[in-house]
């Protein structure tokens, strides 16, 4: 079950700069923690976040263990045309989770 929360304005004026917020449930295990048996807890983090707007990549981020659990990222985009904004999170194992939202531009 994808556990993501994205916020994209439903409607925007052409050329308007809109704020986007994206969050995903993930422990962002740093790899520096010690488990109860004294051994290291293996690193498991979201390594990369990308946002595409009608298929074109418009924003991305490289994440390190210092990003908090359940990573939250807010950024801005210029509303150009109506369409779909897609979000992809990729973890250390290369596994991806996605979310998407539509925006109407007039």
């Amino acid at each position: 079950m994808a556990r993501t929360l994205v916020n994209v304005p439903k409607v925007a004026k052409q050329g308007e700069v809109v704020e986007i917020k994206a969050m995903i449930a993930h422990p962002m295990e740093t790899g520096y923690r010690i488990g109860p048996n004294g051994s290291n807890i293996a690193r498991d983090i979201i390594r990369r976040f990308t946002c595409t707007y009608n298929g074109e990549e418009v924003f991305s981020a490289d994440l390190f263990p210092a990003v908090s659990a359940n990573p939250f990222i807010a950024f801005t985009l210029v509303a150009t045309t109506s369409g779909t904004i897609d979000f992809t999170w990729t973890d250390d194992a290369g596994k991806t989770q996605t979310a998407s939202a539509t925006i109407t531009v007039n």
Partner: peptide
């Protein structure tokens, strides 16, 4: 963290935790 922006970002403004 490293954010990658483009002209289409509109503003150079990012937030995270």
């Amino acid at each position: 963290v490293v954010f990658h922006l483009r002209p289409r970002s509109g503003h150079a403004m990012v937030s995270t935790r």
